[in-house]
Simulated assay, not measured.
Amino acid sequence: MSTPSSNAGDHRLLLVHAHPDDESIGQGATMAKYAAEGRGVTLVTCTAGEMGEILVPELEHLAADREDRLGEHRRTELDAAMKALGVTDHRFLGGFGRYRDSGMKWHADGHAIAADDIHDNAFWRADLTEAADLLVEVIREVRPQVLVTYDQFGGYGHPDHIQAHRVAMYAAQLAAVPSYRKELGAPWSIAKIYWGAMSESRMRAGLRALRDAGDTTTFEGMDPDGKLPHFVTADEDLACGVDATDYVDTKMAALAAHATQITTDGPFFALSNNVGATAWGIEFYRLVHGELGPVGEDGLETDLFAGL
Score class of each variant (00 low, 15 high):
A239S: 15
L134G: 05
F153H: 14
E200M: 08
D212M: 10
A259T: 13
A209G: 02
P57M: 12
P57N: 10
Y150S: 01
D160Q: 11
I25C: 06
D223I: 10
E220P: 00
S6W: 04
L15A: 09
P20W: 01
I139W: 00
Y34L: 07
R202S: 04
D298C: 01
A115L: 04
G155L: 09
G185P: 12
E37T: 04
A253R: 13
S2Q: 05
H19K: 06
W195I: 00
E77F: 09
Y150N: 08
F268K: 02
Y194Q: 02
L292A: 15
G290H: 06
M104D: 01
A244F: 03
A277T: 12
S6M: 07
L55Q: 05
D89S: 13
L304W: 09
Q152S: 14
E291P: 00
G9I: 09
A175K: 04
K182C: 04
I118P: 01
T30N: 09
L228N: 09
F284N: 15
R74I: 00
A126F: 02
G52V: 06
P294F: 14
W124F: 06
H230R: 12
L59E: 06
P159D: 02
D109L: 12
G94W: 14
A63F: 07
F123Q: 00
R125M: 00
L184K: 02
E60N: 14
T233M: 05
A244E: 06
V295G: 08
L62K: 09
K251P: 01
A175L: 03
Q163D: 05
D303M: 01
L134H: 10
E67S: 10
P178H: 12
L135K: 04
T217K: 12
D79R: 13
A176C: 08
A277D: 11
N273K: 14
D133F: 05
R208L: 05
E50N: 15
A63K: 14
V136I: 03
D101Y: 09
A126V: 04
H111Q: 12
G26H: 03
G103A: 06
G276I: 11
E130T: 14
A186S: 13
F153Y: 14
Y180T: 11
H119R: 09
L59W: 15
L13P: 00
V44R: 13
H11M: 13
S102K: 07
R125S: 00
L207S: 09
F231Y: 15
D68T: 05
P294K: 08
A168F: 07
Q152V: 13
Q261M: 06
A205R: 08
I139S: 01
T218H: 03
G52A: 15
D246Y: 03
Y34V: 12
A29W: 10
V248M: 12
